[in-house]
Design a protein around this nucleic acid. Structure first.
Length: 538
RNA sequence: GGGCCGGUAGCUCAAUGGUGGAGCACUGCCCUUUUAAGGCAGGGGUUCUGGGUUCGAGUCCCAGCCGGCUCACCA
């Protein structure tokens, strides 16, 4: 029983009317909350099987069936009436007439509200307008909607209500169901791809005594019996690599990570990540594998390699590769002085000069000409530089500065699939150095639609080097960087048994879903995104 | 956390500082192939909350709550 007084006064009235009807339905002898309904077809199955059949066909065959669903439209005509039943994401018309269903069932029909769940028993025919319809012979009451549905034409548009009451969103906005069906196909395609390559799917701890595997602030929780603080994992990485040590040479996990950071259209505190690791491979092998993986996923979910995203035509047919430095040079803002050349980067400290140059440009007010050009070239997704000066803490190492410059200058331009490779050592504590340049590591991130979709590297497997990296991270922690790693002694112990040379990669499933469903907010691809708790009135 | 925008009936939206409306939904009556069914007649409001200005506030001001976008943080 719902609390009537908790609703608005009209909502109270509407719910009271429906309660009253429910009692009237009970008085007719119908169970108010029956236990089950034996159906012969789902609604999509009816449509799939009989959409091609003409009325004569249907009449001759007299196809009897039982279907169930939610009543989404009602058009009564005195002693008869039409309705639409919604189930499994599809709709089917029903036709109910007094002389076919009898007094009692027709009385039930009169007491139905939009949103009620019913079962219909009857035979198929086509109406005068040609619509495939169930001619009801019996009605079964299954459950009452005590609360009214949103408006039938405009539906539910209030984003807050859509996220908080996703069940209502799903009822009235077919697009929502399509997105999550596509998401499920996407995840299935990933499993198919990796399983066929003999990767083993595993599940590793989400509650970890030490959070590791990514530079992010964790959530803290507590186990009572052990009187132990635990962290929700920020990444499964260190556990998956322990499995590499144990001889699981191809391994993956698709599951949730938790990061105690800000919320935005691209960040939800819990999000789904695919991580996979392959022994005896390096990051270049991962790039090749990533291309194949994404093409497989796109074929399986949308049936092609091209898709629209925020007004951009994106194609997975070709993946560009740029080093981080090359990307900065390539996308250096037009108006800024002294475009850098690649040879200018020989000195690692040079990046600070380029940041100064960039900041001088970013601090200038945008000229009208630039603004007009931007608007004229406008796609829906703004690819222009944000013109925010880069603010770095006093003792930022050159590598972190380069990454900041890259993100400011280049990231939003990377609409077509682009691998950015060769990351600075300082921002990559778990990756293996490049053989010819120890200031950089064998790592790439894949950008599509201006978003980071994947992050991969040749895995560092030298325990001594790993200890040095952790110690550097500890230094950062001590200086107040709460996202820096803590030293994980057991992980170093595992590496000390010998981990095969390997490469690993993380892929953001939510963001990949955003791309393949043309969704512009991560909340649109997460069924129940985190919101502040609703304040209960009263 | 900062900036901008928003919150009016169950839903979608109107309303120069001057009696808060419409469509859908809902109630009653009519209607046995309709489909945004139709016809007639009705009911429904803490205008997010709390202050303030004013003869008078949905509207103006201040504070707060919730949300959206964006920036910062991050993936």
């Amino acid at each position: 029983m719902i609390e009537l007084s908790s609703l608005g006064s009209e909502a109270d009235e509407l719910a009271a009317q429906r309660q009253k009807k429910l009692r009237a339905i009970a008085a007719l002898g119908f169970e108010t909350y029956p236990r089950k309904f034996n159906f012969t077809h789902t609604i999509p199955a009816v449509l799939a099987e009989y959409s091609g059949r003409c009325d004569e066909d249907l009449k001759a065959a007299r196809i009897s069936l039982r279907v169930a669903g939610r009543l989404m439209a009602l058009r009564p005509h005195g002693k008869a009436g039409f309705g639409h039943l919604s189930g499994d994401g599809a709709r089917l018309q029903i036709y109910v007439r007094l002389d076919a269903v009898g007094e009692r069932d027709f009385e039930l029909f009169r007491l139905l509200d939009l949103g009620d769940l019913i079962g219909v028993e009857g035979y198929l025919f086509r109406t005068r307008t040609g619509e495939l319809t169930v001619h009801a012979e019996r009605l079964h009451f299954l459950a009452k909607a005590l609360l009214p549905l949103p408006e039938k034409w405009h539906g539910l548009t209030d984003m807050e209500v859509r996220y908080r009451q996703r069940y209502v969103d799903l009822m009235v906005n077919p697009r929502v169901r399509e997105i999550f069906e596509r998401r499920a196909r996407l995840v299935g395609a990933i499993r198919e791809f990796l399983n066929s390559r003999r990767y083993l799917e595993v599940e590793t701890p989400m509650m970890q005594p030490l959070p590791g595997g990514a530079l992010a602030r964790p959530f803290v929780t507590h186990h009572n019996a052990l009187n132990l603080d635990l962290y929700l994992r920020v990444a499964p990485e260190l556990y998956l690599k322990r499995l590499l040590v144990g001889g699981v040479d191809r391994v993956y996990e698709i599951n949730r990570n938790f990061r105690n950071e800000g919320i935005s259209t691209q960040h939800n505190p819990e999000f789904t990540m695919l991580e996979f690791y392959e022994a005896y491979a390096d990051y270049r092998d991962m790039m090749a594998l990533t291309e194949r993986l994404l093409r497989h996923v796109a074929e399986a979910t949308i049936g092609r390699l091209e898709f629209e995203w925020w007004g951009h035509k994106i194609s997975l047919a070709r993946f560009e590769r740029l080093t981080m430095k090359e990307a900065v040079v390539r996308f250096w803002p037009e108006g800024a002085q002294a475009k850098p050349k690649l040879e200018d980067w020989a000195d690692p400290k040079a990046v600070f000069r380029w940041i100064d140059t960039y900041n001088r440009w970013a601090e200038q007010p945008q000229s009208s000409l630039e603004r007009i050009q931007e608007v004229a070239s406008g796609t829906d997704r703004d690819t222009s530089a944000p013109r925010q000066p880069i603010a770095l803490p006093a003792d930022t190492p050159p590598g972190a500065a380069l990454q900041a410059l890259f993100e400011a200058v280049a990231e939003h331009h990377l609409i077509q699939p682009t691998f950015i490779l060769d990351f600075p050592l300082e921002v990559s504590p778990l990756a293996k150095q490049k053989a010819d340049d120890p200031n950089y590591v064998e790592r790439f991130e894949l950008y599509v639609g201006g978003m980071e979709i994947a992050n991969a590297f040749s895995e560092l497997n030298d325990p001594a080097e790993q200890r040095d990296r952790f110690e550097y991270q500890q230094l950062l922690r001590d200086r107040g960087d709460l996202a820096a790693h803590t030293i994980d002694e057991d992980y170093i112990r595992a590496l000390s048994y010998g981990m095969p040379p390997a490469a690993g990669e993380g892929v953001g499933i939510d963001r990949l879903t955003m791309l393949l469903t043309d969704s512009h907010s991560i909340r649109d691809v997460i069924l129940f995104p985190l919101l502040r708790p609703e304040k209960r009135s009263g």
